[in-house]
């Protein structure tokens, strides 16, 4: 029987579907019996989805540093 510590270590591989059939079954058996690990996996899944959603929610900041580099690159492009 896998321990909670092992579930935590294997969690990303589980969510990425990178576990062997046997490992996956052992993982699911543990989740069936352990509500802490079920909550942990739910938290990790939500974390990944939040990270994936993050860029869409952020604004794009165009500050002086961005403008300077953009200007240099544009000048470089115009010389080609």
């Amino acid at each position: 029987m896998l321990k909670c510590r092992e579930i935590e270590q294997m969690a990303s591989d589980y969510l990425n579907k990178d576990l062997s059939f046997q490992q996956r079954m052992a993982f699911k058996m543990h989740l069936f019996l352990c509500h802490n690990c079920r909550n942990y996996i739910r938290q990790l899944k939500t974390t990944i989805s939040s990270v994936q959603l993050m860029p869409a929610k952020q604004s794009v900041v165009i500050d002086d540093k961005v403008k300077d580099l953009a200007k240099q690159l544009r000048e470089h492009a115009s010389k080609q």
Binding site: C4, R5, C37, N39, R42, T46
Partner: peptide, 19 residues
């Protein structure tokens, strides 16, 4: 090898609510 503290369900459960 068990969790030292219980792992709770989050109040803000969806990515939308979190962000």
């Amino acid at each position: 090898g068990h969790w030292g503290e219980p792992v709770s369900q989050w109040d803000l459960e969806t990515p939308e609510a979190i962000l």
